[in-house]
């Protein structure tokens, strides 16, 4: 990697990089904050920020449709649901449930091992090939290593892909799309059914008598 670390790259530290650093660091920071926070409401808040920062990373990667979907569905939908759940169950004894020390050690161990495995893999996979001649598409790669986050319309092609029209960089996904639609419907019905616990409560009825009279 040393051979790439020349003055040539310094000039390419640009707005894109700065923004990436901003969002990337935010994402990592808030993900870790989720782990280390004990208060469940704050965890939810950190999660919101982490996922919002992730959508920023999506934008930087040129996936603006996915980034927006992340904001709409994940941050705006799923997490509101989650926060709702948190607030419904946020009674004092459950806001901060402490984890035993032993659990932390085991978890840290497992997490550390996972990280140690993942990071080198990231380097191996993510790096551009050392030898320029090896891969045919190199010139293309040089071209796409763009310096500014150029907005490329992706929504149309994604939409066509979901409708099962394959393109040059997208396959047809009609069947998965339909399956997921059905799945969503099933989940909606299921969730609504599950959440309706059969708790019976007695209420007085005077007011209704009055209303009726």
């Amino acid at each position: 990697m040393g051979n790439r670390n020349g003055g040539r790259w310094m000039g390419e530290i640009n707005g894109h990089t700065v923004l990436f650093l901003f969002f990337g660091i935010l994402t990592c920071l808030f993900s870790l904050a989720v782990v280390f926070s004990a208060n469940v409401v704050r965890m939810a808040f950190y999660l919101i920020l982490a996922l919002a920062a992730t959508s920023g990373l999506h934008f930087l990667a040129g996936a603006d449709f996915v980034g927006t979907m992340q904001l709409v569905l994940y941050v705006g939908g799923t997490l509101v649901l989650l926060v709702f759940g948190v607030m419904l169950t946020a009674q004092n004894p459950f806001i901060s449930l402490r984890t035993a020390g032993g659990d932390w050690i085991v978890a840290a161990l497992v997490g550390g091992i996972l990280l140690v495995i993942l990071v080198p893999v990231a380097f191996q996979i993510g790096l551009p090939p050392q030898d320029a001649g090896d891969i045919e598409g190199l010139t293309q790669r040089e071209a796409v290593a763009s310096s500014e986050p150029v907005s490329v319309p992706t929504a149309t092609r994604i939409g066509l892909g979901l409708l099962g029209v394959p393109g040059d960089d997208v396959s047809g996904y009609l069947l998965p799309f339909e399956i997921i639609s059905i799945h969503l419907l099933v989940v909606l019905v299921g969730a609504a059914y599950l959440a309706r616990a059969k708790r019976k409560v007695v209420v007085r009825q005077e007011s209704q008598n009055i209303a009726g009279s």
């Binding site: 959440a195 309706r196 616990a197 708790r199 409560v201 007695v202 007085r204 009825q205």
Partner: peptide
């Protein structure tokens, strides 16, 4: 919302979704 027993004929039992 803790009581579940029926107290009198005036009262009625209502099912609640969420505790």
């Amino acid at each position: 919302m803790s009581t579940t027993e029926e107290k009198s004929s005036e009262n009625k039992v209502v099912e609640f979704d969420v505790r």
